[in-house]
Design a binder for these strands. Structure first.
Lengths: 341, 341
DNA sequence: GAGGAGACTGTGAGCGTTAACATCCCCCAC
DNA sequence: GTGGGGGATGTTAACGCTCACAGTCTCCTC
């Protein structure tokens, strides 16, 4: 039935040993770069390995070493640009470090779902887990989890006892809002992400902080859900309001929808209203107009999370409480302009 | 060192057996739903499992069964919408079937890279591999590979001896082109994807086929690379040409760039020129104007590829040569209009 | 009431590797 | 010349599970 039972069975260490005229343990030593192997023996073993096309059985190895060299990744909807980019960064960094990556992509990021995913990965025997936990519910699910496997959270909150790597959302929102205030806008409106998301929260905090620090009115938030459609709906509302001259939208997709609504309503951007997004998706440079936005370095997030996780694994500790914040980068394009007096 | 060496070792089957007063084999039978276990024994074993918090060691299990219940996925740049959606679909389908998914995301999809990735996954002991091979080079790398592990290609060509699941690119392009011809446009221009990509090729073939079948002139292709920027550049060229009234762009991202270039040049869409894209990314409904495009059902592609792969695995054959084509869906929005006479 | 078919359970071996320990041999110091 | 240190290698025992086979017990049939 199995593919191996048909042709010649694939060779095992003992086969190599026989061909090389040594014991299987010596083969193991060669494979593991053990120092005490005579050079001549080593080459003989290597030749035998080559001749037989031998490949070490990693499953057997994992059984005895108790290390699978596999990392688990739990993420919410990897179809979205942010999670997809983060997971990509994680995967690259892990592979560079010689680890396999096993992925679980969740449709909904509730407590039960996260727990299940974590159990599932623990069953598989992963050496560590990265949880891309952008929602409050997901982050909380991490807090009270049995701490028997190394773990690091990406974009989670800093409450639990796990390490967290994230982009500085508050700072990004601050940059965006200050940019608009600096252009002379009286205040800045905000289309937010869904309330359960930590990123949405951070962006609100940064935006509100700047407004208050500058003694400006804090307009009512227009709630969105990251989708272009919700941005469009917010845009329809804002287009009707003459006093609106600047909008900070919590992500680029919603900003696109907003731009669409403005275009339909004949509101000129940036002539009448300035718009800033968040994410810097590859498309945003080609929106109409090209979008001023905040770039997140997802690659750095991925690399850093793997770095922290591997340090935990190698130190043999289950958890640490490091916090690493990656700075955002502000990107000025053509959707913002000085306020008209 | 290892997390298990610190606290109490996690329980094994023998521990459960002792608590339940049975042999380890009976525990195994309960776990594997073997029919011949007395109900009373089963509940006793289950209780012991629960009491001890026992979890079966899947690594040990994989060693003896020679099945890891892990599937490998090789994909090109999972940051792109298409591959990301496909991998997402694959992952969901695999997990629903009780399989883990190990992912390798390649920066470049050349022959050596694909080989390495396949070796890497084979080492890990995956039961089967899905290769998202959208480029000709990748697809060819599959053709002459040692056939010792079940494999299925997604979006590959149909030349090698592996099964292939793909969206019908030719048909999608045909729908787009026929739609434009049907609107009275004399001919249709095309901004293509990179030449090495099979999808790009299929879309060209479908487009060209319709033009020839209708006795229309086949304009020179404007080559793109999927990026919004390349669409923008093509748009700058096309905007200068008065005879252009309809453009079929090989993906939505490039279509966005093209729309941007047209907007800058004052070319009205769909007033002066009609535009059709491909992919139906979530954003395209909110482009200016909302984009008429071709939707690909990536979820269906993922499910079908996993279905074929699992059938191969369960049948114990390494390869089959099935070909499954998922039909595209044409989506009319506001970027196309009847030709002006 | 003996024989046999099932149902249920236990025993032992083995998956392919690494870890721990044992062994051999060479060479050097006293 | 002998004791011993250490490099190079071999031997044996795990790791935690499933498979094959061997039991035991019950119940039915003739």
């Amino acid at each position: 039935m199995s593919s191996t039972s048909r042709g010649r069975r694939s060779p095992v260490m003992a086969d190599v040993a026989k061909v090389a005229g040594v014991s299987h343990q010596t083969v193991s030593r060669v494979l593991n770069d053990h120092p005490n192997v005579r050079a001549e023996t080593r080459t003989r073993v290597l030749a035998a390995i080559d001749q037989l096309g031998y490949r070490r059985n990693l499953v057997a190895r994992a059984l005895v070493t108790r290390h699978s060299r596999t990392l688990g990744v739990v993420s919410f909807d990897t179809t979205l640009y942010g999670p997809a980019s983060t997971v990509y960064g994680i995967e690259q960094a892990a592979r560079d470090a010689g680890y396999f990556v096993s992925i679980v992509s969740l449709r909904t990021m509730d407590r039960a779902g996260v727990r299940d995913a974590l159990d599932y990965l623990a069953d598989q025997g992963v050496d560590g887990i990265v949880v891309v936990a952008p929602q409050r519910s997901a982050a909380r699910a991490l807090a009270d989890l049995p701490a028997d496997v190394p773990m690091v959270a990406v974009e989670g909150d800093h409450a639990g006892d796990v390490s967290v790597v994230s982009v500085d959302q508050v700072e990004g929102a601050r940059l965006a809002t200050e940019h608009l205030i600096g252009l002379g806008h009286e205040t800045v409106w905000h289309v937010s992400g869904p309330s359960d998301w930590l990123e949405a929260e951070g962006r609100i905090a940064g935006w509100r902080g700047v407004l208050i620090a500058n003694g400006r009115a804090v307009p009512e938030i227009l709630p969105g859900d990251w989708s272009p459609r919700s941005g469009y709906q917010a845009g329809r509302i804002l287009a009707e309001m003459d006093e609106v001259t600047a909008v900070f939208v919590a992500n680029d997709q919603m900003a696109l929808g907003l731009l669409r609504a403005f275009a339909e309503a004949g509101v000129e951007v940036p002539g009448q209203v300035s718009v800033v997004g968040f994410d810097d998706v590859p498309e945003s440079e080609f929106f109409s107009p090209p979008l001023t936005t905040v770039r997140q370095d997802f690659g750095a997030v991925g690399r850093n999370s793997i770095g922290i996780l591997l340090r935990q694994i190698e130190a043999g500790q289950d958890r640490s409480r490091e916090r690493l914040v990656v700075p955002p980068l502000f990107k000025v394009r053509a959707s913002t302009a000085p306020a008209r007096r």
